[in-house]
Simulated assay, not measured.
Amino acid sequence: MKSLKNHLSLIVALFTVLFAVQIYVAVDRTIAAYETHLKNDYSIIVVSNKAFTPVEFKAMDTLIDRSEAIATDQVLDRLQGEMTKKNLDLLKLTLPKFYRLYLNRFPTPSEIQNLQKRLQKNPAIVRVEGYAQTHDTVYKLMLLFKDVVQVFSIAIAAVTSLLILKEMRLWQFQHSERMSIMALFGAPVWLRSAVLFRLAIVDAIIATGILCLTFFIIAEYGWMDILLQTVGIKIELFNFIDDSLRSLLIALGVSIVLTLTIVIGNEEEE
Score class of each variant (00 low, 15 high):
Lys86Tyr: 12
Glu177His: 10
Ala26Glu: 05
Leu184Gln: 05
Ile256Ala: 01
Arg78Cys: 04
Val159Lys: 10
Pro188Arg: 09
Leu260Lys: 01
Glu82Pro: 04
Ile112Asp: 00
Ile226Trp: 13
Gln229Met: 10
Lys146His: 14
Ser43Gly: 08
Ile23Val: 11
Arg100Leu: 08
Phe238Trp: 02
Leu199Cys: 03
Leu115Tyr: 03
Gly265Cys: 00
Leu196Gln: 02
His37Gln: 13
Thr36Gly: 10
Ala32Lys: 08
Lys121Arg: 07
Leu228Glu: 08
Ile235Arg: 01
Thr134Trp: 10
Ala204Val: 05
Gly265Gln: 01
Gln120Ser: 13
Ser43Gln: 11
Pro96Phe: 12
Ala194Lys: 06
Gly253Phe: 08
Leu119Ile: 02
Val149Leu: 03
Glu167Trp: 12
Ile218Tyr: 10
Ser153Lys: 05
Arg105Leu: 04
Asp136Thr: 11
Ile70Ser: 06
Ser180Glu: 11
Phe15Arg: 03
Leu227Pro: 00
Val17Arg: 03
Glu56Asp: 06
Phe173Leu: 14
Ala200Lys: 05
Arg198Tyr: 13
Leu249Lys: 08
Ile154Val: 13
Cys212Trp: 15
Leu18Pro: 04
Leu18Thr: 04
Gln22Cys: 03
Ala187Gly: 00
Ala251Cys: 02
Glu129Leu: 12
Tyr34Thr: 04
Phe145Gly: 09
Ile217Gly: 08
Glu167Leu: 05
Ile241Asn: 14
Gly130Phe: 02
His135Ile: 01
His135Ala: 02
Arg127Leu: 15
Gln22Asn: 07
Ala20Arg: 03
Ile156Lys: 02
Asn239Phe: 01
Leu196Phe: 01
Lys39Glu: 12
Val12His: 08
Val12Cys: 10
Gly186Val: 03
Met142His: 07
Asn114Tyr: 10
Asp28Met: 03
Gly81Phe: 10
Ile235His: 06
Ala158Tyr: 11
Leu119Cys: 05
Thr72Ile: 08
Ala219His: 12
Asn40Trp: 11
Leu258Lys: 04
Thr36Asp: 12
Thr261Phe: 13
Val159Gly: 15
Ala155Met: 07
Lys92His: 15
Ala155Asp: 02
Asn114Glu: 12
Ser48Glu: 05
Ile264Cys: 04
Leu91Pro: 00
Leu101Ile: 03
Thr53Ser: 13
Phe52Gln: 06
Val138Ala: 06
Leu76Thr: 00
Val128His: 00
Ser193Pro: 01
Gln133Val: 06
Ile217Asn: 08
Phe216Tyr: 14
Asp61His: 08
Gln172Ser: 15
Ser176Gln: 14
Ile154His: 07
Thr137Ser: 14
Ala158Lys: 06
Leu119Asp: 00
Ile31Met: 01
Ile70Asn: 07
Lys92Trp: 13
Ala155Pro: 00
Asn49Arg: 12
Ala183Asp: 04
Ile154Cys: 02
Arg178Glu: 10
Trp171Gln: 12
Thr208Tyr: 03
Val75Ala: 12
Gln174Met: 09
Ile205Gln: 01
Trp171Ala: 07
Ile11Thr: 09
Val189Met: 10
Arg169Thr: 11
Leu76Gln: 09
Glu82Asn: 09
Ala194Met: 12
Cys212Leu: 14
Glu269Ala: 09
Lys117Thr: 08
Ile44Gln: 09
Val257His: 12
Glu270Thr: 09
Thr72Gln: 13
Arg100Cys: 06
Phe216Val: 02
Lys58Ala: 05
Val55Asp: 14
Gln116Leu: 04
Val148Glu: 07
Thr72Phe: 11
Gln80Ala: 05
Ala59Gln: 11
Ser110Cys: 01
Thr160Met: 11
Ile70Glu: 14
